[in-house]
Design a protein around this nucleic acid. Structure first.
Length: 311
DNA sequence: TGGAGGAGCCGCCAGC
DNA sequence: CAGCTGGCGGCTCCTC
């Protein structure tokens, strides 16, 4: 059982605050995390939205936590309280994990925890973070950066992705996917090219992340479910079962979604013919691509391209 | 648009 | 006995 302390700093963003409470506090994870919200001291905390908020615990909750989450707050309002910085530093040196959501990264940076490390924050504040804390290597293009004991996430909803990544590492991909499904969010969002490269792949062999990655690089080829299962080292039936547990869909559905995604990207950024794109994405014929794109975007491929490219 | 052929999906079940 | 695996059959859906 991991104790999670969510530290609400003055000017806390309530959306960010709710994310870890919602993810780690879910009944699906009962008995695995014990979540408590805290502040500099028990009592009222100013929120970014102006709604009244009152918490029961102070910084002693941080001192007892295995995981500390710092939601976003207004970093320009005032300097972060020194007591909070001390508590965060103490938590890290004690071996606790510290996560931030959105502008919560400013508190970690102010504590000097991010010096010489990669981090991210809301894209609107990314350059500001880099300017104020030059020793921090800011990457504005990812959903989150998981650097082991320290993890930072980009704006707002990316905090969900980070919290789910923590659950995935602690309790496996299947359980994380289950929590994601109950929260009605994607089990794993890709934050563009950079996120793909930097995604922390779980070391455990039971995850299908490697196979998904492999599939993504072989979209153009004829892929059967049997091929995918072979790559995963499982029988087709077992593979399909695990696949559904982790992604929420069947192998072929997922594969087709990836292909359509790639086809859309090519429509947006290249002038390749529809037939050519169909071939390059493994969608086969132009007719097939047309029906799939139409289902996905509610327009024809050429209309989608015109709308996107603006001519 | 229709239809044929094929692949995928999933409940069921036996076996480990 | 519980839990996981993987083969089978039939229905569905996809592709051309």
């Amino acid at each position: 059982m991991d104790r999670v302390a969510v530290l609400a700093l003055p000017g806390v963003v309530m959306f960010d605050l709710a994310i870890p409470l919602q993810v780690f506090g879910r009944s699906d994870l009962a008995g695995r995390y014990e979540v408590v919200s805290c502040a500099l001291e028990p009592g009222a905390v100013a929120t970014a939205e102006g709604l009244p908020l009152s918490v029961a615990a102070g910084l002693d909750a941080v001192a007892r936590a295995d995981v500390v989450v710092v939601p976003g707050f207004d970093p320009h309002d005032r300097a972060v309280d020194e007591r909070a910085l001390d508590a965060l530093r103490a938590a890290v040196s004690r071996g606790a994990r510290v996560l931030s959501i959105c502008t919560g990264a400013f508190a970690l940076a102010a504590a000097g925890l991010l010096d010489g490390r990669r981090a991210t924050t809301h894209w609107q504040h990314a350059s500001d973070l880099g300017t104020r804390y030059p020793a921090v290597e800011v990457d504005p293009d990812v959903l989150y950066v998981d650097d082991g004991d320290l993890a930072t996430s980009a704006g707002l909803a990316a905090g969900i992705d980070l919290c789910l990544a923590v659950v995935r590492r602690d309790h496996g991909a299947d359980r994380a996917a289950e929590v994601a499904r109950r929260l009605v969010v994607a089990p794993h969002r890709d934050g563009g090219q950079a996120q793909l490269l930097d995604r922390p792949l779980p070391a455990s062999g039971d995850s299908l992340a490697d196979t998904c990655e492999w599939i993504r690089h072989h979209l153009a080829e004829d892929l059967t479910v049997a091929d995918m299962a072979r790559h995963a080292g499982q029988a087709p039936r077992t593979f399909a079962r695990h696949f559904r547990a982790q992604t929420g869909t069947s192998p072929l559905q997922w594969l087709t979604a990836q292909r359509v995604h790639e086809a859309r990207r090519l429509l947006e950024r290249t002038d390749a013919t529809v037939a050519d794109i169909a071939r390059r994405t493994g969608l086969g014929t132009a007719t097939n691509l047309r029906t799939l794109i139409t289902r996905d975007t509610r327009t024809t491929p050429s209309a989608y391209r015109r709308a996107y490219q603006g001519h």
